[in-house]
Design a protein around this nucleic acid. Structure first.
Lengths: 223, 223, 223, 223
DNA sequence: AATGAATGAGTTTTCATTCAT
DNA sequence: TATGAATGAAAACTCATTCAT
């Protein structure tokens, strides 16, 4: 109350309880990270919350302080992964002015650097594995993430076709074909190495791009 | 039925006996089919043996007459699917004499007709989902199925390259890139329709083949 | 199939599995009885299903074979008790032709013999204790059981009044006042002996009836 | 405030200090009130301390500053309710000089006004519900509260009998029968409305008293 | 004094596996 | 062989109690 001690409030000092608060703020993301790892590794049903909690360094009860059920944690893990993926993707999405081929290259490599090579790629495996058990998650993912990625590819393909850089083709089918190797690459990291067992991701992506580019060019074109 | 096969008859009524024997023999395949459907749909952990038994039209106890554990059923389901897939693939694999492009086309379409469009495709999703939980299954699958498929593609690509029909390239990486859209097509059928949402499998495969063929051709080639 | 062995059917003999089947048929009521005892003793929340199962002589899992949840068991216990109580009450409810006082006496004693002195009385305590936690059960009980009992008493009172045997009074209030000692007697058996600690039920009921009868008589009447 | 009481002032602002002290002292009673409401509503086991604390406007930790355990809070709630009830009853218990009938009327109405119509009535429901889980509480309640109430009634009845105002009867049984409607009225307020559904407490009590009075009078008496 | 995050023992619930019939 | 009732180990979930701040 004395003018010479003006900043001392009667309540606890704002810095107090900082350790606790810092931990509290960090808890959800620690739990989400632990959940992502285990869910990706084992699937929803085979993952025990005990293990998730242990991996996050807390007790089982603590987990329930932040997520009301196993399913809620699962959905939050997906949601969190999706948001991060979309944010990462957004950074790359500045309008590209060069040739469509370059844009395509940019999209493929950007995806790998921002998503495919990170923990976020695991979400894809998770969605694929659990889509039937959580249809609403699958729908949500399709609407928010997949349609976005497809739109970017569609833009690139259509621009290339308009400018004569690419030959006309079944754009939607081509999008699927272009995406497939990316997804398999992502999935492989968290599953059976179905593809790319001894091929480096870089070689794999480069080969994909090379095949793709030549496959897209109008007949008779030279590089 | 032939008189020279007398041991077919016994004191029990022949009709009843054969029915019973047929049913007995059929039981496992009904169980395998039911198991495949449910495991593919829900994954290993989320599938209840009660449901498998009910779908196969038997009691839970009966299931244990044929498979000593849930895991044994799971492995049998995979094994069974793999054997069938390899048999199906084998039929197509008579040495092909025409151009490499035709062989490639044959392989892609053959895969779809014999495997991709059938229930066997589900095994792929299963393996991808459960690879981490059953590493030995994953290894086995890789050795028996994947390596076989890759070998066929390798043969086709190398022959094409040798004959100047295809340009030189990173063969192993190309194999992965070629396989990926097939797997995604298979997986999509039992999961989120990540690809091919509104694209027919035929369009999808044709687009894949077209892109691939042009992508493989030496620069400057004309169809 | 032979005429000399006519009663041997191909399926299992009807008497077979009888022990099992008999147990199976008995299970639900054994569980209901065990549940009633414990729920009445401890209340819903404080009763462990483990204990219910043990008291019924089965394992915890078995309980779930017959009731899908603790709440379902609880509701079934109440339902079962109510049905039994109504059945018991029904036996007594043959139209009574004598004086209203006799009918009243009959109702009071009948209630005690058929319900109050049996395990069914515990249901009353249960309902009273858990009414707020299971409002729908309370409603159901009120509609099915209480209103029935009240109707019987109302009939007796109104007949007595019509015939000048009883003086005119606030019938609904009187019904409540008449029922209260019965309920307290029932409750006391499963709770604190609030009333009747050293008074025998017979003395208690007789005193109740005596007070009541004189209380109901028109002023100046002699027995 | 008086200069001869200088220790009342300190360096802290006097208003702040008194507020804090008052709040501190008030805390337990707020907790007791919150506890009573919830325990009465849900029973001991089904009441969460979290809810009690929230209703009292404090944190769960604070509750433990005043009560070492859930059971301690429960006992304090009962104790507190009993003390208040006995105090309330005491006020009414000045020696009554008029006719026994008037004393009886006074006891019934007094009970309603001081206890039955207040929150204290909930304690009865609580005791009834939890008597088996807390036998020592039940014993304590019986000794301290019930015996007291019974003694008062006994006094009234015996005086009435001695003076020829009431007929001779089984006094202990009569006490039980007289108390029962009171208890049911109290219980009904916190439970299933077993009695008194559409009957006002006043009508109910008046009917009870009327029946009782006539029931107690010697045969042939006129009002 | 007061807080509320964290804990872990205790309960409910599930389901692969067994076994008497 | 076939059945399905019974089991109990394991997992989800709850909540009284503790304790660092």
């Amino acid at each position: 109350m004395h003018p010479t001690a003006p900043h001392e409030s009667s309540s606890t000092a704002p810095g107090a309880a900082s350790t606790r608060r810092r931990r509290k703020n960090a808890r959800p993301s620690e739990l989400l990270a632990a959940g992502l790892e285990l869910f990706v590794d084992r699937g929803f049903a085979a993952t025990r919350l005990d293990d998730v909690a242990r991996r996050a360094g807390v007790s089982k009860g603590t987990l329930y302080l932040y997520f009301p059920s196993k399913e809620a944690l699962f959905k939050a893990v997906i949601e969190d992964g999706m948001v991060a993926a979309l944010l990462a993707a957004g950074e790359r999405m500045a309008a590209h002015q060069g040739p469509a081929a370059e844009l395509l290259h940019e999209l493929l490599l950007g995806w790998w650097q921002q998503i495919g090579s990170t923990a976020l790629a695991g979400v894809s495996k998770l969605i694929i594995s659990e889509a039937r058990n959580f249809p609403e998650i699958a729908d949500y993912y399709r609407e928010r993430v997949i349609s976005r990625g497809r739109a970017l590819l569609r833009q690139a393909l259509e621009r290339g076709i308009d400018q004569g850089e690419f030959r006309p083709l079944h754009v939607e089918a081509a999008i699927d074909v272009i995406i497939a190797p990316l997804l398999m690459l992502a999935i492989s990291r968290f599953s059976l190495r179905l593809c790319g067992h001894e091929v480096s991701p870089e070689d794999y992506l480069e080969t994909h791009f090379e095949l793709l580019l030549r496959g897209l060019r109008p007949a008779g074109d030279r590089p």
